[in-house]
Design a protein around this nucleic acid. Structure first.
Length: 451
RNA sequence: GGCCCUAUCGUCUAGCGGCUAGGACACAGCCUUCUCAAGGCUGGAACCGGAGUUCGAUUCUCCGUAGGGUCACCA
């Protein structure tokens, strides 16, 4: 509490990844929960790169993390790198050694690279009890931790020291992190107490699990956030999905609704309702959510984004015939699950399809000459429609009665195949509208000639 | 193995002593339908086990069991 105005202290959180690999879904969710909690409380959020391990930390991973979070829409108020804060750690380390809460220890190196002189924490061997927002009270006996190492030397702090010092120095009030950090907590609390830091409030969120219930990792396939971007997932959809893993807006005063944009999540999220057990990553649900997002997106925007997922040659053509491209997107958008799916069955909109004449025959039609006459009938109808009236409703209106009379499949199937050359595609009325009068007529004629 | 954590449909979850245990994804069937997708309807599907507390336990307690996390001069 601030004594002057009696206002609650401003909330400060941090997301503290180490740049030793690409941003992973689990980290992304931790960042998200931090973000939601911070925003809904009007707090400040820090991104802190924990790169004290100079061997494993790589600048490209730092970039991957920053890009990934940026893509997801998770913004930070402050940014730090631990590698640039050596002075701060040194200051506290000296103080600890001076006060005897840490000491320089001479030892026999057991492995290559180990020092013969390191700095250990003087463990007071007490029981530590802390309250976790998600799990409630947790108690540890720190005796078993021994005098753990806090730094290799005055210039080289190790993880626990750097974390405790930074959280204190940066005024962090709430530590929201993965479940796997739970056993690190007592060590960090011990250091906090040694340097006179107040204890932050902890919230350990459960891990994201693979289908085999183990901690989700690279070996389980795609876990890198940026891979999802490349595959054409919408960032909002991924955020939405991640939020629903381990948290639910359902409940007494809740809702069964499941589609939430970031700003709605900020309003609805409740850290106290976060699940205690780990949640298995289920890509089916992600795909479903992504589909909902695609459906809700404006066509113009989709056209702009989707074009980058086309192979080069098609992309060039789509760019040249952008009006056609937009129409294609308008009917294909509801048929795809993720952006990269667009590349698959789009070709026939730009190129006259190739297919065997047998495909033109509907399964119930034995006589291919009948099929031919159906196509001729359709051809005549299309030729008679004015350019300006060449749309799906008009075409359907003119063809429908005939199709009813002759058997819909007998008429509509060859119509559709003539346009797409595909077993599966949108209906022929939509396609002819998108292709336009001239192109549609050309393709029907092609089909007739085949027979 | 020590320590810590967890336990409702296949999966994500609602439930905060009394419910036909609800929703979503996935799945199956039906409808719509020229195909596919979408959409609509219907269905199958869960309280880990055992003691206690209680008039009454999915819910509270304990003990099992199972799963997970963590035990570095990594983070």
């Amino acid at each position: 509490m601030d004594k002057k105005n009696n206002q609650p202290q401003k909330i400060v959180t941090r997301f503290a990844p180490s740049p030793t690999g690409p941003v992973h879904l689990g980290s992304a969710r931790t960042a998200l929960f931090n973000y939601l909690f911070t925003k809904q409380n009007g707090g400040k959020m820090i991104l802190r790169i924990e790169d004290t391990d100079t061997e494993r930390s790589k600048p490209e991973y730092e970039k991957d993390i920053i890009d990934g979070l940026d893509w997801l829409g998770i913004k930070f108020d402050e940014f730090y790198r631990q590698s640039e804060r050596k002075d701060v750690y040194k200051k506290y380390l000296s103080k600890m050694v001076e006060e005897g809460t840490a000491y320089i220890s001479k030892e026999e190196p057991k492995e290559e690279g180990q020092r013969s002189e390191i700095i250990r924490f003087k463990n007071p061997n007490v029981k530590i009890k802390f309250n976790d927002l998600i799990r409630g009270e947790i108690e540890f006996d720190t005796t078993e931790l021994g005098d753990f190492v806090v730094a290799r030397d005055m210039e080289s702090p190790l993880y626990h020291l750097a974390v405790a010092v930074d959280d204190f120095d940066m005024g962090v009030t709430h530590i929201i992190r993965g479940d796997d950090g739970i056993s690190n907590t007592p060590r960090q609390i011990l250091i906090q107490e040694a340097i006179g830091a107040p204890r932050p409030i902890y919230a350990h969120i459960p891990l994201i699990l693979a289908p085999d219930k183990s901690k989700l990792s690279k070996r389980h396939g795609v876990v890198s956030v940026n891979k999802y971007k490349e595959e054409g997932y919408i960032s909002g959809a991924l955020i939405n999905f991640l939020a629903l893993l381990g948290w639910s807006p359902q409940g007494r005063e809740g809702t069964d609704e499941e589609i939430f944009y970031l700003d709605e999540l900020v309003k609805k999220f409740d850290i106290n309702k976060v699940q205690k057990k780990g949640a298995i990553f289920n890509i089916e649900k992600l795909n479903w959510i992504n589909k909902q997002y695609i459906r809700n997106a404006p066509i113009d925007h989709l056209a702009e984004v989707l074009i980058d997922f086309l192979p080069d040659d098609l992309k060039k053509e789509a760019d040249e015939k952008y009006d056609l491209w937009k129409k294609v997107v308008s009917i294909e958008a509801e048929r795809i699950e993720k952006f990269s799916d667009i590349a698959d069955s789009i070709d026939y909109f730009f190129h006259v399809p190739e297919y065997e004449k047998e495909m033109l025959n509907w399964k119930d039609e034995k006589d291919i000459d009948k099929t031919k006459s159906h196509l001729e009938y359709i051809l005549n109808i299309l030729c008679d429609i004015k350019e300006s009236a060449f749309n799906r409703e008009i075409i359907k209106g003119l063809v429908w009665d005939y199709a009813e009379k002759e058997g819909r499949g007998n008429v509509l199937w060859p119509f559709r195949v003539a346009l797409s050359g595909k077993q599966k595609s949108p209906d022929p009325f939509m396609m002819s509208e998108v292709l336009g009068k001239e192109e549609s007529i050309k393709r029907i004629k092609n089909a007739i000639e085949k027979i």
